[in-house]
Design a protein around this nucleic acid. Structure first.
Lengths: 233, 233
DNA sequence: ATTACTACTCACCGAGTAA
DNA sequence: TTTACTCGGTGAGTAGTAA
């Protein structure tokens, strides 16, 4: 995912890197004694010394040991890590909507009309164009059970979606559909669809994917399924 | 200085907070199992559980334990911490100049003409106005000894400074002076001054302060003094 | 399923100290 | 003065397990 996940040791190192940046080691070579650094990071001189050694090994700083102290300069690699955290934080702080929303539901068998709608050419062409896949003719129906999931489903509907336009053929009119790209059970790419006038109420969810999810994920009625719906930035 | 200094334990907690924000817990209540969080932070389920308990105690998240997992929402206090880190990083990343520069030198006795210049009314009025203090009539002279300090001194001269304008009185012309507010020996506020045409070369530094530094800091010739020159943002 | 307690291990921290 | 080694104690992380 990103370096912050690696392990607890790196978090601590990264914190020291940040402190060095605060002292200006990002834009010039600074002189720091391990004693002084120790004070700034609230640790012992020995620990500060160890951190500097580890930071150098990790490649985040250059270190030049002098009789009067260490000359420290953060490397490009170290600055890149700081920049990465900065831009991640920017995304988090400025985001109007959460990056994704995770729902859980239980498989149930619907009326089978999903296949009919999904295969209408007016829809299908837009799925291919806007979602990037040709959906398997049929939808996976999930029943939402907890209060949290139902609340989240209705929140999701308020977030910006991929809009599949309605159309009219010889016989009738088809309404517009809202889609959210989704990851099903952490593995399969697909989409959550909200038909504007669905037969199901707020406690159900329809999912489409390129393949037959029931066989691809070995699902049977009653199985629990996790769906991570991705929200457009 | 700021909360990031408090201790290593808070840093680890803070990174978990960041991870939760990444999952959207900053803008809505999310459901996370301790198992899932454990995976994201590369730790055990037990550790993830402990972190959530500590985060709640610290007041950075609200937690609602359900049979299916925990409902987590970052509190205003938690978001404020994330914002603080974000803006600190922004300053670091966008700064053209380091926030400050630390120099070390050894006290020596000069020609005593510092007192004459500092007390010229044309300078003195500007010191009071632009530095915020009435300088003691005299300068503390420091001899820079290491290569690092001399290099840093000349770097400092390239950074934006407080400009004391030159002037002319009945008898002669006085040149302009560059100043940097400074902290002497981590305690006393004063300023570093660079007279445009100084008698001293690049290996000396002149410091002024409201009081007589030699007595205030119990300094004698040969004592080492640390000066942190602050650079304007 | 979950969360989170207890018990144990081990890695990290810092005192002492060398260079 | 510095940095950074060894080493012993301690607190953090995890396995087992209860609820």
């Amino acid at each position: 995912m990103n370096f912050l996940s690696v392990d607890a040791r790196l978090w601590k190192l990264f914190f020291v890197l940040y402190k060095l940046a605060e002292m200006g080691a990002g834009s010039r070579t600074i002189k720091v004694s391990t004693e002084y650094l120790a004070e700034r990071i609230m640790a012992s001189q020995q620990t500060a010394s160890r951190y500097l050694i580890q930071l150098e090994k990790t490649g985040w700083i250059n270190r030049d040991i002098r009789p009067e102290g260490c000359l420290i300069r953060i490397t490009d690699s170290g600055m890149a890590k700081l920049k990465k955290l900065h831009s991640s934080l920017r995304l988090i702080m400025e985001a109007e909507y959460p990056p994704s929303v995770t729902l859980e539901g239980v498989v149930f068998t619907g009326l089978g009309e999903g296949a009919y709608y999904v295969t209408r050419d007016g829809y299908r062409r837009q799925f291919i164009e806007k979602l990037g896949f040709d959906p398997y003719p049929g939808t996976l129906n999930l029943k939402l059970t907890t209060e949290y999931d139902m609340k989240t489903r209705s929140e999701l509907e308020t977030y910006p979606s991929i809009e599949i336009e309605g159309f009219t053929d010889e016989t009738r009119t088809f309404g517009s559909v809202k889609c959210y790209p989704a990851i099903i059970n952490n593995k399969v790419k697909g989409a959550v669809i909200f038909a504007m006038r669905s037969h199901y109420n707020a406690s159900a969810l329809e999912v489409i994917a390129p393949n037959f999810l029931r066989s691809q994920l070995k699902l049977k009625d009653g199985n629990k399924v996790k769906v991570e719906a991705l929200i457009l930035p």
